[in-house]
C-alpha cells in the first residue's frame, strides 16, 4: 500500500474524533493525533480499535504506546501487515 492511500485511510478513521478541521484537511505524516488534530485522549482508544478492525490486526501495548501521530500509526500498520 502506498503512503498516500494509507494516509487517506487514516484520515477517514480519525475524522469522527478530530476536532481541528484545518489540521484534518492538511493531514500528513507529521500530524500529531492529540496536539494537531485535537483528538481527545479517550478517543485515541477508538482510533486504535478502528485501525485494528479496518486492517484486521492487533495493536499490542508496545505499539499502542507510540501511536500518537500519523507516522507511528503508518509504521505500525505496515509492520503488522508485512
Amino acid at each position: 500500500m502506498d503512503k498516500e492511500t494509507l494516509i487517506a485511510e487514516l484520515k477517514t478513521i480519525v475524522k469522527p474524533y478530530a476536532k481541528d478541521e484545518a489540521a484534518l484537511a492538511n493531514i500528513n505524516e507529521n500530524t500529531d493525533f492529540i496536539n494537531d488534530l485535537k483528538i481527545n485522549s479517550a478517543n485515541l482508544v477508538d482510533v486504535i480499535l478502528d485501525v485494528e478492525e479496518k486492517y484486521n490486526i492487533v495493536i499490542d501495548n508496545e505499539s499502542m504506546e507510540k501511536m500518537v501521530n500519523v507516522k507511528a500509526a503508518m509504521e505500525i500498520i505496515e509492520s503488522k501487515l508485512a
Binding site: 481527545n40 479517550a42 477508538d46 480499535l49
Partner: peptide
C-alpha cells in the same frame, strides 16, 4: 461531553486502557 464522545461499552475498549 464524555457520554456523547465516547462509548466505553464498545468491545475491547476497556481492556485497552484498564
Amino acid at each position: 461531553t464524555a457520554a456523547v464522545e465516547s462509548n466505553w461499552r464498545r468491545p475491547n475498549y476497556l481492556s485497552k486502557i484498564f
